[in-house]
Nucleic acid binder design. Structure first.
Lengths: 214, 214
DNA sequence: TAGATTGTTAATCGATTAACAATC
DNA sequence: TAGATTGTTAATCGATTAACAATC
């Protein structure tokens, strides 16, 4: 398996397979790509290709894949088993929700520190995460060796805080603000834009309403 | 402009253009697709095609697009100017964050009611939104005529609550749980899966680390 | 006019799907 | 063995990008 040679759409589907496999009863020892495809409403060949790219030992004709092994392979492939330290800037409601979200740990990400400029929040904690003064960011971030930066601030300050992150060793930014961030070429940016999602839903809804009228 | 004949990737970019245009100083009367492409790091022809699909009157050679008009066209095209009622089930931290998020209104979505089964939450409100007993869902949802359902519950109950939504007139489900939902063909599902995003980031990070080692 | 910018037609690229041979 | 299932090679489909003609 060559982790670097998988297509982006394919990579997006892997976590979906993984979470589906985890819902199977423990008595299910093996599963075929065909069955996974049927359950998730996907094309059979597509699932087979995806799984074969991520699986170390492959499936067996007539048997399919060993569920436990496939889960392990997917977790390995997605990097869920190597811990990645993350810091978060902006402890608003969304930031707080992410801090208390337990699901990240099993994806290999651990939020080691949070930052804000609000004195009523500084010094507190949410979940297991301490909230620091944003002025302590350079010291804390570097000391913790964090590589992922989660940005949950208003768009006005996003670029400035993004720059601050990059100056202190952050390599990948998970941007929950609506701001467009300018970063050097070698930095990873992942925009989580709720307006984009909502636009897709709006569009599909209007299309559907239009069809019904005809 | 034919709203139904735009590609999905193109549709995803429109809100990005829109939010960029809104950051321009009011003195900027016109802007070229070329300039937008440069600012957002996108291909010039792609931007031109996207804008020409969404714009009602088109751009003018040597001038570009009238900013104000283009903003209006994009908002129209994306359906931001028609109000769509939404209900939300699951007032946890994430649900609460969405309820207090002010940005949805300007995308044309209004959350009219929230539901939970926790007695300490029922009867309260977050932002402007009242929190109802989940048992009142059928009555309230139908009375409000909501068409969008936001699902922010644990995955275990997601399918059941999804079914409840569909039984009461919901046509589109914005699913923030990790559960895979089974729905009839004509229902719109949009999955907001943080694990998927995280997997992308993890993968890109590992790839980058790998390259650096070589 | 000259040149910037538009919109479109054609070429390329990449992902999905279909067909098929291999295997347990 | 027969048939289910795998993995791969080839065909199709759709999106991006390049080339170009049109226009203010």
């Amino acid at each position: 398996m060559d982790k670097t040679n998988i297509s982006k759409p394919s990579l997006r589907r892997l976590p979906v397979y993984l979470s589906y496999l985890k819902t199977l009863p423990p008595s299910t020892r093996t599963i075929s790509a065909t069955a996974v495809a049927a359950a998730l409403g996907l094309n059979e060949v597509q699932v087979r290709k995806d799984l074969s790219a991520a699986s170390s030992s492959g499936g067996r004709p007539k048997m399919g894949y060993a569920v436990e092994e496939l889960i392990a392979d997917l977790e390995d492939f997605l990097g869920y088993r190597s811990t990645k330290e993350a810091v978060l800037i902006g402890v608003g409601r969304l930031g707080g929700a992410l801090l208390s979200f337990k699901g990240f740990e099993e994806c290999g990400m651990r939020i080691v520190a949070a930052f804000d400029n609000d004195p009523t929040k500084i010094g507190g904690r949410i979940g297991d995460v301490h909230i620091y003064d944003i002025r302590d960011f350079p010291a804390v971030c570097q000391q913790q060796g964090a590589r992922i930066g989660i940005l949950t601030t208003s768009p006005e300050h996003a670029q400035m805080l993004c720059d601050l992150m990059l100056q202190n060793g952050i390599l990948a930014i998970w941007n929950f603000s609506t701001a467009h961030l300018e970063v050097p070429e070698n930095i990873i940016i992942h925009n989580e834009n709720l307006a984009v999602s909502l636009a897709m839903i709006s569009h599909d809804l209007e299309e559907m309403m239009g069809k019904q009228k005809q």
